[in-house]
Design a protein around this nucleic acid. Structure first.
Length: 435
RNA sequence: GUGGCUGUAGCUCAGUUGGUUAGAGCGUCGGGUUGUGGUCCCGAAGGCCGUGGGUUCAAGUCCCAUCAGCCACCCCA
């Protein structure tokens, strides 16, 4: 007879179990995200994890959605997708209450998102993403505010300016550079922009030959390839060639970099090669790069997308927003030694000496009413073993409760960090923990 | 979806050219006498060698398949 196949103890592919220490880290990250967003006046919202397929088809290609999402039919045959991103959802929500919401609207959310693909470094099938959006502001003040918020977020995790770099570009500027300055037609421009997106993944010669393949003979002969290469080497806005220097978006970007610099944000720079896909961004785009050599990648990305709310049949609402995944953030914190040492939520581990569990309940209950988190050892083991259990769990304080303490009303509070003991009444203990 | 690398104890890994009962460190649990942890000493538990098939007198070791993990590509919302 064959043995039964054992059940797998592994979590689903590309998804994670969160044991208490993992969950503590997640709570830490979420708390920082919430704290900083709320300090800028952003309000938290949420939505269902399931959306109808159509909501994604409107802005992304059908094939991509069908191949890279969790797509299935519900019992009534509706096509349902587990949300792979939050932007369509939040656009839907804003569109639904387009008239009654008051702008500017500052919203954030921390949804879990799913995508169907092979997991790799920095990318799992399920992740949590901070989504921040500012609706209803047409001018660059919106970009400025959102980028300031991004910077404040990084600083809240203890990041130093040399650990990350904020890169800015403008889709309008790039579009005009390709169509106007380089005189490319639509097809050429699309192909070239895709290549620019992959620029850093190939060497110069390979890039040039790929560009030559995309360009029509007429463009090649006109020396467009050389012109393009020169453009991509531009590092500063004022180095932009010809009419691009006077482009309104260039002026706006320059202005914003100045404003950011005045505000003490000096690790931001213009990057003409920054593309961020090619679909729904309408003007400014930005990304935050990890400067650590082992993780030289984009961690966070966003920009202006003024057209999405309008897809729901209402008047469009200008929007600037970004998304930041927990996986890339965790990699960042690890590589830069910014991982916090997080103790458990328990303040006190109560060791009960002798057969006095019943009598110990009252003083312990009063501690809890006073806001102190108390776990009670119910094992009846020797005190030493109970203290060891507290130490192993990482709880700093042990409360020893025995005949002596119950008689005197003064409980023994031991600090495992210092090894010192104090005899305190429950109210004194509560006072101590309130500090 | 494509390709590469890797699967031995909870974790990190040893395991000779295939050759008896599978090894270490860390961790876990117990003990070192009855109200005090971390260090130290002693001991124990814990392995279908990822899974299935094949070659062989003999497989952790060789071959095939499969699953899983990692990395890269594709894609990136």
């Amino acid at each position: 007879m064959k043995a039964k196949m054992a059940l797998s103890k592994q979590p689903y592919k590309g998804a994670r179990d969160f044991y208490p220490p993992d969950k503590r880290l997640q709570k830490y990250i979420f708390a920082k995200w919430r704290e900083v967003c709320e300090s800028f006046g952003y309000e938290e919202y949420d939505a269902p994890i399931l959306e109808p397929l159509e909501i994604y088809l409107a802005k992304t290609g059908e094939e991509i959605v069908k191949e890279q999402t969790y797509l299935f039919q519900d019992r009534s045959g509706r096509e349902v997708v587990i949300r792979p991103e939050m932007t369509p959802t939040v656009s839907r929500m804003v569109a639904a209450k387009r008239q009654e919401l008051s702008y500017p609207l500052r919203w954030y959310s921390i949804p879990n998102l799913w995508r169907y693909e092979r997991p790799q470094r920095g990318r799992l099938r399920e992740h949590w993403q901070l989504n921040v959006d500012l609706f209803g502001v047409e001018g660059m003040e919106a970009e400025y505010e959102v980028i300031s918020l991004v910077d404040a977020l990084f600083k809240s995790f203890g990041a130093k300016p040399d650990m990350y770099e904020i890169r800015l570009n403008s889709r309008k500027l790039v579009d005009d550079a390709l169509a106007g300055y380089l005189s490319l037609d639509g097809k050429e421009a699309h192909g070239v922009s895709k290549l620019i997106d992959k620029l850093h993944k190939m060497d110069r010669a390979k890039f040039v030959s790929a560009v030559d393949k995309v360009l029509k003979p007429k463009s090649r002969e006109a020396g467009i390839t050389e012109k393009l290469l020169a453009l991509l080497d531009v590092r500063k806005i004022k180095e932009l060639p010809g009419e691009l220097k006077d482009h309104p978006s260039a002026a706006e970007l320059a202005q914003m970099l100045n404003t950011l610099s005045d505000a003490g944000i000096k690790n931001a720079r213009f990057d003409v090669t920054l593309m961020r896909g090619f679909d729904y961004y309408t003007d400014v785009v930005f990304e935050v790069f990890d400067t650590h050599p082992d993780n030289n990648r984009s961690m966070l990305g966003g920009g202006r997308f003024d057209g999405l709310v309008g897809l729901f049949g209402v008047q469009p609402v200008p929007t600037v927003g970004f998304g930041w995944g927990d996986v890339t953030l965790t990699n960042f914190l690890e590589l830069h030694s910014l991982m916090p040492d997080l103790p458990p939520e328990t303040d006190i581990y109560a060791a009960v000496v002798g057969d006095v569990v019943d009598q110990a309940r009252k003083p312990i209950a009063s501690l809890r009413r006073g806001g102190v988190n108390v776990a009670v050892d119910l094992s009846g083991r020797k005190v030493g073993d109970q203290i060891r259990a507290a130490d192993k769990k990482g709880v700093r304080y042990v409360l020893v409760v025995g005949e002596e303490e119950l008689k005197s009303g003064k409980l023994t509070l031991k600090d495992l960090d210092t090894g010192k003991e104090q005899k305190l009444s429950p109210s004194e203990i509560i006072k101590k923990f309130k500090e």
